[in-house]
Each structure stands twice: as structure tokens, then as C-alpha cells.
């Protein structure tokens, strides 16, 4: 599917998607509440069939957090980027590790580095940092006077 077809297809599935211009692949903003339904459709609808989640991360925009999901289809070879704005004080989004199992570790990484709480995640614990770590290191306002070198 070409990018234009993807945009039309997706907006029919989820009318309140907000497409974003720029980037080589179609970008969409989705409400966190609508994300599980959309994820199901993306994964299991035959003409979409996004079976490969190749990048899952988060960006701290100071006013809000944005989850970024890069998806690809090994059958149709099309790519898509789904983003979701999260409240910075209480970031919560449904997990997708039952759909794309690679998300389990990636979500744990985002959980400890950004503090995003993934609902219904089977094993949401710190993966990289020690269990008693305070703060979310990849957030923009994180301060560590000892270990961080500011240039």
C-alpha cells in the first residue's frame, strides 16, 4: 500500500486520527484510549498486517510525553508511525506486548527511563536501572549532578 492509501485506510478505521505532515512514512496521532483498538486493527487486518514493531520509544516534549511506535509489515512492506500524546504527570497507555511480543522489553525500558505506565503489562519492572533508582533519566528535566556531564 502506498502512503496515501494507508492514510485513507486508517482514517476510515479510526476517524479521529490526526495525520502529521513530514517524515518519509505516514505519521498519526492517536488518543491513548483508542490505541488498543487501533493496534488490533493494524496487526490483524489483512490489508494492513503490521506484524513487525521495529521501534518503540518515547519522546519528552516538556509539555507532554509522546509514545512513538514504528510499525512495518513483512507481507506488504509498508511502514507507519503511530504516536500518542501522554499526560506528563500521569502517563498511562495500554500495553501492546500481547500483540507484538517484542514490546514487552521495550515497554519496560520506556517505563523506567520515561516513567510511562503501561497498563496490563505482564511484568512491568525496572529492566536496566537498579530497583531503588529515583527519577526518569531520559526526561528532559532529569538532573544528576554527579554522573551527568553537561556540555
Amino acid at each position: 500500500m502506498t502512503n496515501e492509501e494507508l492514510i485513507t485506510e486508517l482514517t476510515t478505521i479510526q476517524p479521529n486520527l490526526v495525520p502529521e505532515a513530514g517524515g518519509e512514512w505516514p505519521n498519526f496521532f492517536v488518543e491513548a484510549a483508542d490505541w488498543p483498538k487501533l493496534a488490533q486493527a493494524l496487526r490483524f487486518k489483512d490489508d494492513l498486517f503490521f506484524d513487525y514493531l521495529f521501534c518503540l520509544t518515547c519522546v519528552d516534549w516538556k509539555t507532554h510525553l509522546a509514545m512513538v511506535y514504528h510499525l512495518s509489515s513483512t507481507r506488504h512492506r509498508h511502514n507507519i508511525v503511530i504516536k500518542s500524546k501522554l499526560n506528563r504527570e500521569k502517563p498511562e497507555i495500554q500495553t501492546v506486548c500481547d500483540i507484538w511480543r517484542t514490546a514487552e522489553f521495550h515497554e519496560r525500558e520506556v517505563y523506567e527511563l520515561f516513567g510511562v505506565n503501561f497498563l496490563n503489562h505482564p511484568d512491568l519492572r525496572k529492566l536496566i536501572l537498579p530497583d531503588d533508582w529515583v527519577g526518569y533519566p531520559l526526561r528532559k528535566d532529569y538532573e544528576d549532578p554527579i554522573n551527568m556531564i553537561k556540555l
Binding site: 521501534c55 520509544t57 519522546v59 512513538v68 517484542t102 522489553f105 521495550h106 525500558e109
Partner: peptide, 25 residues
């Protein structure tokens, strides 16, 4: 390599999707 740029000389956010991390899953 995923880079979010704000137009400056440094990346605003950078993410390396490393093969080892996913393979470990």
C-alpha cells in the same frame, strides 16, 4: 537510528533500535 530534531546542532531525542535488545526478547 531515530532522531528527533528541533533544528539545533544537537539531537533533541535520539533512539537506537539495537538488534541485540530485540533479539534478547
Amino acid at each position: 537510528v531515530y532522531v528527533v530534531s528541533e533544528g539545533g546542532t544537537t539531537p533533541y531525542r535520539i533512539k537506537f533500535r539495537s538488534p541485540g535488545f530485540s533479539n534478547l526478547c
